[in-house]
Every structure is written in structure tokens, then in C-alpha cells.
């Protein structure tokens, strides 16, 4: 993803040189996207603000370690997601990780949805408003184990490439692919379970 890296890099360097306004511009540039990203982990506006603020404060202290050839935005995403998960943990809301989810621990042969014939996923009903579809999608996302929600958010919401997702999550591209596959299967399953009405009348 192209992120005007030259500008970012200039602002990073100026921030490191002690220019507070440059760091403020860097924050300004990404604050909107960070608020939107963190919203996938909590709906509480005060918590969102705290997490995003902490993300930027952490980013500032880690600025000297920022690798100039990488994207500032994906670097920031990584910090934001870790901060959001850390926050949940501290509040005792333990996000479900893959290892704790028996269905995820299956061998590749046992992956749910690996048979092409297993049900169809409906497209959103033409009569639904955009915000209505968005609410449904968000509701389904929130029901997914964190590991699946995160990879779907990075791909479908942030529109990151597999390489960028791999960088953000510190995993291989192959793992991104298989995790996305399982996440999509789970999304589809939850969507139909939560909203069977959209399954009806859907024909291929």
C-alpha cells in the first residue's frame, strides 16, 4: 500500500529531531484511521480514545526503531492492535485466541468450509441501506474470535496486502492466507446463523 512514504519519513525524522509539530502532523494524518481500526475492538468512545492515544505515545517512544523502508501506517497498525488487545486483557476481557478454540485447532483436512458444497453465502439484500449492512457486518465481526476478526479487518476494512498483513501480525504470508480462509468461512457461518433471513431466497 502506497502511503506517501516520503512525507511520513520526513515527519518521522523531524519528530526524532525534536519537532513537536511534525509529530502532531503525523498523528493528524493517521488519527482517523486509527480510531476506525480500534473501533473493531471496543465500542466505548473513551476506551477508543485511550487506546489510540496510547498507540501514538508508544509509537513516539519507539520512533528511533522505526525501519525506514517499512510503511509507517502498517507499523502503527501493529502497535494499535497490540495496544487494543492488551487493553482487553487488562480489563479481563480475554479475546479468544486460535489455540483456545477447538474448532481452529483442526488439521487442514478438518477445516470447516473446505468443501465447496457447504452452503452459500448470501450477498447483502438490495433493499438494505448501506449503514444497515455495515451494522450487520460489524455485528458478525464482533462475534468472531479475535484472531479471525483482526485478519478480516486488516484485509477487508484496511485493505492491506497479504505482505502488509504479515508484517502487522508478524506471521508468514502462508499463514495470512490460511487464516483468512478460515476467518471467511467462520464469518459466513456466523452471518447465516445470526441472520438466517438473508439466506432465504438467495439463489446462485
Amino acid at each position: 500500500m502506497e502511503l506517501a512514504p516520503k512525507d511520513d519519513l520526513r515527519l518521522v525524522r523531524e519528530s526524532l529531531a525534536g519537532n513537536q509539530l511534525s509529530f502532531q502532523l503525523l498523528v493528524e494524518r493517521y488519527e482517523g484511521r486509527m480510531f476506525a481500526l480500534v473501533r473493531h475492538y471496543t465500542r466505548n468512545p473513551v476506551e477508543i480514545e485511550d487506546i489510540v492515544q496510547d498507540t501514538f505515545l508508544k509509537a513516539f517512544t519507539r520512533l528511533p526503531t522505526f525501519q525506514e523502508q517499512s510503511s509507517f501506517y502498517t507499523w502503527l497498525c501493529r502497535i494499535a492492535i497490540n495496544t487494543a488487545l492488551d487493553f482487553q486483557k487488562r480489563l479481563g476481557r480475554n479475546p479468544v485466541r486460535a489455540v483456545e478454540d477447538p474448532e481452529l485447532a483442526l488439521s487442514p483436512d478438518g477445516i470447516a468450509g473446505s468443501q465447496p458444497t457447504s452452503g452459500r453465502i448470501p450477498a447483502p439484500d438490495a433493499r438494505l441501506e448501506r449503514d444497515e449492512i455495515a451494522r450487520i457486518t460489524q455485528g458478525v465481526l464482533e462475534e468472531l474470535p479475535e484472531i479471525f476478526r483482526t485478519v478480516l479487518v486488516l484485509r477487508e476494512f484496511e485493505e492491506l496486502s497479504y505482505q502488509d498483513i504479515a508484517d502487522v501480525l508478524g506471521i508468514s504470508i502462508g499463514t495470512v492466507e490460511s487464516r483468512l480462509f478460515r476467518a471467511r468461512a467462520r464469518f459466513k457461518e456466523r452471518l447465516v446463523a445470526l441472520h438466517p433471513e438473508f439466506g432465504e431466497g438467495w439463489t446462485s
Partner: peptide, 21 residues
Amino acid sequence: RSLQRWFAPLRESAESGELAV
């Protein structure tokens, strides 16, 4: 592709709709 159609409105709503923060 159907699945992608569930996410496009989410992006749009978060940018300029009800879900914008």
C-alpha cells in the same frame, strides 16, 4: 465475491456514515 459485498458498506459507513468515529 458475495462476502466482499458485506465489507464495502462497512468501510463506507466508517468513513462517512453511521459508524464513523
